[in-house]
């Protein structure tokens, strides 16, 4: 069995989630705590990939990163071609995983009692210390489940990945793309292995985070 799609999917998802973790948490903190013009628009844009078909997200990425796209042209100038590389698959994963990370952190932030933050301020803590010692530790369950949801979503990303990264075995063929590829060429056993691995990894992660969350909540 060719393991390349598995390693590729894991590599793509780890990098995508690494970026999404920082961007998603940052966005959630900023959008939830500060009000400014355009806040709602930014939030809607972040959430959009959740409801759009991934092929539509892929289409926009193609426009942006393609040879004639604004970003694609700039990168091309430096001799970098993103489209049909595994970086394109990573970017596609980021876009579809971001709303899940964002939503997880946001719902946790909303449940943090503002009184706690206010008391911390009266005890001499500035905004950064309040965030680091009160807000984020209490949002931990949402951050962890956001990471897991983003990671599993990223592992399972198909539509946008196919649009921007294509289906190049050993190069851009991730697990979901391989499943499609194998199954459509009649290799049901090959597709079945991939399916089993994907389901096993995703199930264990989602199961683990649910179990952990229950324990965490009991603590307090």
């Amino acid at each position: 069995m060719d393991l390349a799609p598995i390693w590729l999917s894991i590599r793509v998802s780890i990098i995508a989630v690494g970026v999404v973790f920082i961007v998603g948490t940052g966005l959630a903190v900023v959008l939830q705590r500060y009000s400014f013009r355009g806040r709602t628009i930014i939030e809607a844009l972040v959430m959009l990939p959740l409801v759009l078909p991934p092929t539509v997200a892929g289409f926009f990425l193609l426009l942006l990163l393609g040879k004639n796209g604004p970003l694609g042209r700039l990168l091309n100038y430096f001799g970098i071609q993103i489209i049909f590389s595994w970086w394109a698959a990573t970017i596609a994963s980021m876009v579809v995983a971001l709303p899940l990370m964002y939503q997880g952190v946001k719902s946790s932030l909303e449940s943090v009692d503002l009184n706690l933050e206010q008391v911390a301020r009266t005890l001499g803590a500035g905004e950064a210390r309040v965030l680091r010692t009160i807000t984020l530790p209490l949002s931990w369950p949402g951050i962890v489940s956001g990471v897991v949801m983003a990671f599993t979503r990223s592992l399972g990303e198909f539509g946008a990945t196919l649009m921007v990264a294509g289906n190049i075995p050993g190069k851009t063929q991730t697990i979901p793309v391989a499943v499609y590829s194998f199954a459509s060429s009649g290799d049901m056993a090959g597709a079945g292995y991939m399916v089993m691995i994907l389901v096993a990894v995703s199930f264990s992660l989602v199961f683990a985070v649910s179990a952990w969350r229950r324990k965490f909540i009991r603590w307090y």
């Binding site: 009184n115 206010q118 301020r121 009266t122 001499g124 500035g126 209490l138 307090y220």
Partner: peptide, 17 residues
């Protein structure tokens, strides 16, 4: 508030859980 040097005990105590 962090520079006022005032102690505050809110109604529900707001202990950090």
């Amino acid at each position: 508030p962090q520079f006022r040097n005032i102690g505050f005990v809110p109604q529900d105590y707001a202990l950090f859980p």
